[in-house]
Amino acid sequence: MQPRTSVAGLGPALLATLRRDLTVALRRRGDLVNPPAFFALVITLFPLGISPVPEQLAAIAPGLLWVAALLATQLSLDALFRSDHEDGSLEQLLLAPQPLAALVLAKVAVHWLLTGLPLALMAPLLGLLLSLPSGSYGVLAASLALGSATLGLIGAIGAALTVGLARGSVLLSLLVLPLTIPVLIFGSGAVQAAAMGGDVAPALAMLGAQLALALMLAPWAIAGALRISIHG
């Protein structure tokens, strides 16, 4: 046996991590249902609680949909690294001869595929419930798809920081929610603009820019946060 100087194969490692996390999540379907169910329940309560008058609902629908979706994405964040931490595979992930930032990006991507994307796809249906003006459904789905990816990246930093704590979920929400405000503003702004027949491009562009920024910076922050939490 000769000492190795480096290890090839970041691509296969990323693919394997994607496939592994997807398999694990799909075998525990109960957890997958939580965010969409929360989203649907909250939105169905609003017409009952506020008023069934379509004009009134339509005026606040963009904000309601976005706030409910944002809170729904927070539900599953705490579990992002926790089970890996408990069974010891997070420790192994940190010891893998691969860039940690890339590996955690794969984990966050799976989280988005299984929470953010389903929320974005079901949002138009719930928009119908709140009499969201026609023509803004596409923008609603697009803004949520973009925004939830950013939310997942930001949330993963918090999840990584709190993974070592026994009851980190409250702290996690306190840490993460303030950082999600810009995403909320431009996300609901895009839907609002679409509902009023305005130009949606600027708000969507801002969401895209936020995602690009988060994609560049968050993986490093997540990796650093994991090192701090695990290695104390």
Partner: peptide
Amino acid sequence: LANLLYLGHAPGIK
């Protein structure tokens, strides 16, 4: 890290 195999307290099995 390319030459290390570490097995900790937790087996790291999913």
